[in-house]
Design a protein around this nucleic acid. Structure first.
Lengths: 245, 245
DNA sequence: ATGCCTTATTGTCAAAATGACCACAAGTAC
DNA sequence: GTACTTGTGGTCATTTTGACAATAAGGCAT
């Protein structure tokens, strides 16, 4: 992560040419770590920069915060501008601020993360990007700055969170089978779970509402579909229940 | 948390008069949330500002980050400058950046936290403070800016962490009794635990080394002293063990 | 239709963990 | 000594877990 320091101010901006927009805080940026799930593989949303000296390189969708903008609002705005993904619940992950993480200037970045059901969103390439794409966490391209470190931290955080909060459901479609849920946990935790035991444990929590529908288009017995019952979760949480997988 | 906005720049600094030191990043600060334990009560370390328009008010020990300083280094430096507490393991808590959290200018603050055994440190009043003191979390004074929000978040985080990582031991002296440990959990989680069951659970983890010593100076049967065995914890963690209370 | 293959779903059973409590031990205070 | 306080070692019924067997349901090839 060695970095050349230049004194020519015009070269220090994230997007050379545009530079830091005038209404933005110069030393503070946002980066979004968006997780998806694709055929049982955990994926991450990346953009390819179109401008500046990082042109052509892959990065987390991020940018600068405006003077009069809350951190989370900035995260949402940037994500939508760059990828078209909106109305997402972004949660703060952590702030990364190594002195040399960004070339030339001191820029500290606040990382946000979210989990989305990839099929819910249509990706666009924002004006300052050459493209937007999902990558399996196992086949990530080379990334700019310390974005690999952000991702590494994010995956660890996700592994922890997914065991203690029912956030995994955000990665699945509205209606899902128990096996899909199990495979999600297996993909994130990188482990194998016993199917009957997993069923038993999840169902006993009373957090799933049966849809009274079955899977279609599979070449074997169709599984029952469930949906996450967030009201039940609220109720149980207030009653002292704590979600643990 | 309403805040008056002024346009006179000289009044916008955290420490009026000194202002933001020239070698520091103007829009970024650090605040430290230091937890202690005093007679079974969770406590927090606060300082009383000596300068600026917050003179005389209580606050978390914090300040500005230098251009060439990592976040965590800044947290340690500020903590030592203000309170004399050093060589502490500070962990990042979260970044707070509401537009109006700081009067006049946009200042985002990165909060760090740590747990200390209060008896290990001698407090001093730093040069820009009128005093340093521990406060019970149940009797906090009025605090500046959004420091109450930081504390609230920090306590929630602590309650969660203490159940999933053996960090509570940092709040105790080197050698402690099982009851002290239990009272720590009771204080943080604000709950009551069954003594024999708590013993059983903790001891079965094999994370405590008996000191083969007893408590002294108590008016009843003396309890055995234990110390936390961090090597055993490493070993167990690598073997897939996960600490849960 | 029949048998085959795949996945879904239910059930069993021993081992381990939990929660509620009891009883005795080991000290101090008097 | 007795009274009192906290430590420490138990019991016991209930719940949870982990491993795995057995059966159900559906599509597919023949």
């Amino acid at each position: 992560m060695a970095v050349k320091k230049k004194t020519d101010e015009s070269k220090h901006h994230r997007f050379q040419g545009t530079g830091v927009p005038p209404e933005c805080v110069r030393s503070l940026s946002i980066d979004n770590l968006i997780f998806g799930l694709d055929h049982g593989e955990l994926t991450i949303l990346l953009i390819k920069h179109a401008e500046g000296n990082t042109r052509g390189e892959w990065a987390l969708p991020g940018g600068y915060i405006r003077e009069k903008e809350n951190l989370q609002d900035a995260a949402s705005r940037l994500l939508e501008e760059l990828t078209g993904v909106k109305d997402l619940y972004l949660e703060q992950l952590r702030t990364f601020g190594k002195v040399d993480r960004f070339p030339g200037e001191r820029v500290v970045t606040v990382a946000y993360y979210a989990l989305v059901s990839a099929d819910k969103y249509r990706l666009i390439a924002g004006s300052s990007t050459l493209g937007t794409s999902w990558f399996s966490v196992n086949e990530l391209p080379e990334l700019i700055y310390d974005h690999d470190e952000i991702i590494e931290h994010g995956i660890k955080h996700l592994q922890h969170q997914v065991c203690h909060q029912p956030i995994g459901f955000n990665l699945l479609p509205e209606k899902f089978t128990l096996l899909q849920l199990q495979e999600l946990y297996e993909a994130i935790l990188n482990t194998h779970l016993d199917k009957p035991n997993f069923r038993r444990k999840i169902l006993k929590m009373n957090l799933l509402k049966p849809c009274n529908e079955k899977q279609t288009g599979v070449a074997h017995r169709a599984a029952a579909l469930y949906r996450f019952d967030s009201e039940a979760y609220e109720r149980l949480t207030n009653a002292g229940f704590s979600f643990v997988v």
